[in-house]
Design a binder for these strands. Structure first.
Lengths: 206, 206
DNA sequence: GCCGTGACTATACATCGGTATAGTCTGCTT
DNA sequence: AAGCAGACTATACCGATGTATAGTCACGGC
């Protein structure tokens, strides 16, 4: 799944890009070295430069590729909405790179697009909501996007907490069960929330 | 808030440690340089080594200090549970460092302790829950901890989404409002969750 | 058949940054 | 007064890594 390469793949350029995504995903951009990437791709140091020019440009190429992948996944998810719940399963091998991109500061457009998608979804759901929302749909979408991505970003910690390897089918099934339970039970009752809001209005912020 | 220094502070050692936490928080461990930290602390490169021995050891000292801070905050939060909702406000200036620690792979005990605390809280809440939980309290606590920390870890993205600066009181109030709304409304109905679980049981995992 | 272009390699270069060492100054103890 | 300890500085060292350059090889068009 999601490992289907572009037709243009198999080329050295594609191999380098894939190796870069793996290295950056595993070590982060700083610790990933062009030499290491070249070795993994089975090419010389110079060829990386020949194709991409600089380490920074290589990263940008990886980003573009990620965006491409996400767009394709988004189309797929439009057909089966439930499949999109589990980001670890969805992103597959590109998930570590995504996590780095989000935490090392260069994937803003990507996150924003996720917020866009969520916002439309939420606006739809608001129509059948009984109590009026206290805040705009976009803000809620941003928080929910962050929450959904937290599994990706804090994956190692979540794995420890669940006692399961999230690359395995069993681990992913477990994660889905946990998510279903948590997502279907509010952390706060409406009354508690209303009370906290009132306290906030009184100007007591902490 | 949370800026009250230890009595032992004001010493060069403390200044170096604080500078290190700021630099690592801002740039990450790799990109943070001992030279830069020394300059910020207003001391020489050599003094950093004199006090801490190595960059790695300096990081460990920062970790220990973070743990100390978290413990103190935890005691405070025990008195006023609601204050603990907002991790950005709670962690104050140490929040960027915490985010780095969590995403760059070295803060496992810290996360686990948060899961511990949450687990006890959830076990308590389970007593008054009508439907039986599908998964153990610890797994749910881990996911919820990750979700709660997502604001800290993806802070820049959340800020863009909310259109607010989370260091400002207004931004924090806005975040609180968003959290209260989202936390008090389940993302999935019990029926949807039950149905998804059934689909999972049929062995169709994706 | 030649030549040019682009994929690819080998190697040199320069900088950055962690580490190591030698030395200075201040203050305290005896 | 002597001397020792610890805080602190200046500077040298060296490996790692991104960047740059020169050169080789294969292939396709004129």
């Amino acid at each position: 799944m999601t490992t289907v390469p572009d037709p243009e793949d198999l080329t050295a350029r594609a191999r380098i890009r894939d190796a870069a995504m793996r290295h950056i995903g595993e070590y982060g951009f700083e610790r990933a070295t062009i030499r290491g990437i070249a070795e993994t791709a089975g090419v010389s140091l110079g060829l990386v430069r020949h194709h991409f020019g600089s380490k920074e440009a290589l990263r940008e190429a990886c980003d573009e590729h990620l965006v491409k992948i996400i767009h394709k996944l988004h189309e797929d998810a439009a057909r089966d909405p439930r499949a999109g719940l589990n980001p670890v399963a969805v992103m597959g091998p590109y998930q570590p790179y995504l996590a780095r991109a989000l935490t090392e500061g260069w994937a803003a457009p990507l996150f924003d697009e996720m917020v866009d998608i969520g916002e439309r979804w939420i606006a739809e759901a608001d129509k059948s909501r009984t109590d009026p929302p206290d805040v705009d749909a976009r803000s809620r979408s941003a928080l929910i996007a962050a929450m959904a991505l937290s599994v990706t970003v804090l994956r190692r910690h979540v794995e420890r907490g669940l006692g399961a390897d999230l690359t395995s089918p069993e681990g992913q099934a477990k994660l889905m069960r946990v998510m279903l339970d948590v997502y279907s039970h509010p952390l706060l009752s409406l009354e508690e929330a209303a009370e906290a809001r009132k306290a906030l209005d009184r100007g007591r912020n902490t």
